[in-house]
Design a protein around this nucleic acid. Structure first.
Ligand SMILES: O=c1ccn([C@H]2C[C@H](O)[C@@H](COP(=O)(O)OP(=O)(O)OP(=O)(O)O)O2)c(=O)[nH]1
Ligand SMILES: [Mg+2]
Length: 831
DNA sequence: TTGCAGACCCA
DNA sequence: TGGGTC
DNA sequence: GCAA
């Protein structure tokens, strides 16, 4: 109860102003209100100031919602305590809110509606609230409630969405000997800027490969190859996996945040139409297997839940286990109950107004920010059509929506909103949302209203404020959204990169050092600590302005409490104790040396350390240390210094040329070679050389061995880190050396052309990009590997079924499937 | 409290 | 299967 | 370490 004490809260009536507001803040943030005002600091004055910004309607609604479920305030606070959330980000509180608040509230209603309302008068803080919540006769409510819980889940098929008619496009123009390369050999340059513009020349006789006529036909016929996928899978994925947004996205319901109560009619209509459309589609009449949560159904529990919190501090926890609550929340989401829809005002509206609720965008009006360099006319036309076809309205100017209408402002990027001063006035309005066009497309595709969070434009205030981006160019209609803190790293593009503020650079440097150290230490623990920290670094990297205080980064995706406190420390003291401790730790220092040996990782390095080995000297030939080395590690040790040296871009090209000439001869022109890795991403210096050999499947068998043999005979390849046979290895790792140059690591993979697209993505990286992209794929119920992309089904995060691999001819095909705007290799240089 | 990318090669 | 690596 |  630390938090409770800290803010002196007593829940509701007895609750301090500050606590109340803190809860409101929690609630509002989870409803993406946070964009309406600068992040709150927790000081009362500031909070109050922020609240005054609310439109009256918003404020009232919020109050209604908050007054209702006393219990859950406690639930929130309790959770805050339970998870040591005190002082943590509102985001975390918000997620508690979602998990605890929603089901509890729902439970209250069921209880309230099914039993006599009067028995639990203290549920409602005020009669006013009760009235505004739109309660009709209690019996009606109960019925609706039951229906909601028995609504079968909507199913759709995936067939339509597979028809991505991706034109074959020329991608991947790799340089053979193409001209200019920056001269500066800045080995010491920080990673952010040590990139050169990529050279784009064509790769001799093969550049046609991906544009050859038949590939077009293949692409289209590839679509049906995808097995129809039920929406259930998509939804499961949306609910179960680590998504991009701080707020859970679910397919139909707009879960996050404020719970609103539909009038009985509204809900019934919604349910009816749902059922109707369900029957119409019928397809595979799978019903929702999720059971009604018993705890919610249980009257006794619920009556305990609504008892005054002050008197029974633990009632919430007693009446509903955390698991039950979470399951209840999930159930609600799965059921597609849009808990947030309908407001006090809406109730009146819906009783008088007639509309076709069966349409997807009923009661939605759209405003498209197009023209200029923003949205192309073609795109706009398409979107307008979708909107109108589905019962939506399209507005010609920006104004506050009436009554229960939802206004969706659609723009390619928040940057384009600047042109519309009227936007400012809409920021605080409840039923106004700012989205990317993808929201509409996705909604249409899945025939469901999707989370307002996932496709939301963000950082609205700041992009309206700053003049910095007034002249945004929209290259080729591409999405160059820069400011949004997107959840999937593979989707975002970085800022110009040159003007990283000093403060940010410093923070990143220290965090990166921690990442490298976690990497050395090894173990599950540190492995994921590393991952987490890496994400934090990535978040800061894409943060556009100087970090002056914690408020700047608090709430950023990827920045949690630990990072926050480290940043605080860095701002105040210029350093971070944890990092400083690592720097002088002899164990860490030794590990760093040992793991500089290729083939030695945390486990062996630690073993060596445990053996009393302390330096590379202890590995000299004939010593006991030497006998501990594996074959590969011996090679790694031999070239210790050389391998730890970066390769200038030009030298990579020379190496590429040597290899390619050999491939051309031995492969009789059938093979194409592509240099990938950091080189393809445009870096000025590279850690190694990564090459793809590709040809039709019939030729790939055993080819690698021939080339390696040739190169070895030419004294270009000096050592092998894998043994290669004629029986078709897929990859080679070895050592090569140009005359007069250092020994370099050379990686080659051999790939049949039908796997080229996925291989290119894989081998181009970055590793961080790949992981992000694969995570998104997984999240969308696909599996992406270097070989293929295929739909999958999972149970408890385990793959239970893998569909047929989807035919992809170009990298872009894969991006399209995963709904990621195409990223050039250079743009993939993240992490 | 759980999961965090997905695969190849070696011993 | 665990270690290392891409 | 972070998000859900
Ligand atoms: O854990 C990893 C490591 C690498 N890769 C892919 C992406 C990467 O770009 C490519 C080549 O690996 P390499 O280690 O050579 O990385 P790089 O991106 O080329 O950087 P460097 O300059 O260190 O070689 O293999 C992964 O998918 N996962
Ligand atoms: Mg590389």
């Amino acid at each position: 109860m630390e938090l409770l004490e800290r803010i002196g809260a007593k829940v509701l009536d007895g609750m301090s102003e500050n606590a109340k507001l803190s809860v409101m803040k929690t609630a509002s943030e989870s409803f993406r209100l946070s964009r309406c005002f600068p992040p709150l600091q927790g000081e009362e004055a500031e909070v109050l100031a922020a609240c005054s910004v609310y439109s009256a309607a918003r404020f009232r609604r919020l109050k209604v919602d908050l007054d209702m479920p006393k219990v859950t305030f406690k639930g929130i606070l309790e959770a805050a305590d339970e998870f040591h959330f005190a002082g943590k980000s509102a985001q975390e509180l918000a997620s508690c809110y979602n998990e605890l608040f929603l089901p509890a509230l729902r439970g209250n209603f069921r209880n309230t509606f099914q039993t006599n309302q009067d028995t639990t008068p203290q549920v409602f803080a005020s009669d006013q609230a009760q009235k505004e919540s739109g309660c009709g006769p209690a019996h009606k409510k109960a019925r609706v409630s039951d229906e909601l819980f028995s609504t079968p889940q909507r199913l759709t098929t995936l067939s339509e969405r597979c028809l991505t008619t991706s034109k074959p496009s020329v991608e991947l123009e790799n340089s053979t000997q193409s001209g200019k390369v920056s001269q500066s050999n800045q080995f010491t340059a920080p990673s952010m800027i040590d990139r050169a513009p990529s050279d784009r020349a064509c790769n001799l006789p093969f550049e046609q490969e991906e544009t050859k006529p038949e590939s077009s036909a293949e692409t289209i016929e590839a679509a049906p190859a995808t097995v129809p996928v039920s929406a259930e899978r998509i939804e499961n994925r949306a609910n179960s996996r680590g998504g991009s947004d701080s707020v859970t996205a679910s397919s139909r319901s707009v879960v996050p945040g404020i719970v609103k109560i539909k009038s009985a009619e509204t809900i019934e209509a919604a349910v009816d139409s749902e059922v109707r459309s369900e029957r119409k589609k019928t397809a595979a009449g799978e019903s929702n297997p999720i059971a009604t949560p018993q705890a919610v159904d249980n009257g006794e529990n619920n009556s305990r839940m609504v008892s005054p919190v002050e008197n029974a501090p633990n009632t919430a926890a007693e009446s509903m286990s955390r698991h039950e609550m979470i399951r209840a929340a999930k159930t609600l989401r799965d059921l597609g109950v849009d808990l947030r829809e309908g407001s006090a005002e809406d109730v009146r509206d819906t009783q008088t107004e007639k509309f076709d609720d069966s349409k997807l965008f009923a009661r939605h009006s759209f405003f498209f920010v197009s023209g200029g360099s923003g949205m192309s006319e073609k795109r706009r036309t398409l979107l307008v059509k979708i909107a109108l076809d589905n019962g939506g309205d399209v507005e010609s100017d920006l104004s506050v929506p009436e009554g229960s209408w939802t206004l969706v402002v659609v723009a390619e990027s928040e940057l384009f909103l600047k042109k519309f001063p009227a936007v400012k006035a809409l920021l605080d309005i409840p039923l106004v949302f700012f989205h990317t066009p993808e929201w509409i497309i996705e909604c249409k595709r899945r025939n469901a209203l999707l989370s307002h969070a996932e496709y939301a434009l963000s950082n609205l205030e700041s992009s309206l404020e700053t003049s910095e981006y007034a002249d945004v160019k929209q290259a080729g209609g591409n999405d160059t959204r820069a400011l949004t803190a997107q959840g999937w790293a593979c989707e975002r593009t970085l800022e110009s990169k040159v003007k990283m503020p000093e403060a940010n650079r410093k923070i990143m440097e220290i965090l990166k050092y921690l990442v490298s150290t976690y990497d050395l230490l090894g173990g599950r623990e540190n492995e994921f600590r590393k991952l987490g920290t890496q994400k934090a670094v990535s978040a800061i990297q894409s943060f556009p302005t100087e970090i002056k205080g914690l408020k700047d980064v608090r709430g950023l995706h990827g920045i949690g409490s630990e990072t926050l406190s480290k940043i605080e420390e860095i701002i105040n003291t210029g350093t971070c104790r944890k990092a400083e401790a690592f720097k002088v730790d002899p164990h860490v220092k030794t590990l760093r040396v040992f793991e500089g040996i290729w083939g030695a990782g945390p486990t062996t390095a630690n073993k060596w350390y445990a053996c009393g080995i302390r330096s590379l000297d202890d590995f000299r030939e004939g010593t006991k240390g030497y006998s501990l080395l594996s074959k590969q590690q011996k090679i790694g040790l031999k070239y210790y210094d050389e391998f730890n040296m970066k390769i200038p871009r030009e030298e990579v090209q020379e190496i590429e040329n040597v290899v390619r000439s050999s491939v051309d001869v031995i492969g009789e022109g059938r093979f194409r070679t592509i240099t990938c890795g950091s080189y393809r991403r445009g870096r000025k210096v590279c850690g190694d050389v990564d090459m793809i050999f590709t040809a039709n499947r019939e030729y790939t068998q055993g080819f690698l061995a021939l080339v390696i043999k040739d190169l070895r005979e030419k004294k270009f390849i000096s050592d092998d880190l894998v043994t290669i046979t004629l029986e078709g290895e897929q990859k080679y790792m070895g050592v090569c050396q140009l005359p007069g140059k250092l020994h370099r690591r050379l990686d080659i993979i051999i790939v049949p052309t039908d796997e080229l697209a996925c291989s290119l993505i894989y081998f181009t990286g970055s590793a961080y990009f790949n992981r992000s992209m694969r995570a998104k794929a997984r999240n969308m119920n696909y599996s992406l590997s270097q070989h293929f992309i295929a739909p999958i089904q999972t149970q408890k995060n385990k793959v239970t079924w893998t569909g047929e691999r989807i035919k992809v001819n170009t990298e872009k095909d894969v991006f399209d499937i995963l709904q990621i705007p195409y990223r050039t290799p250079e743009e993939r240089d993240i992490g």
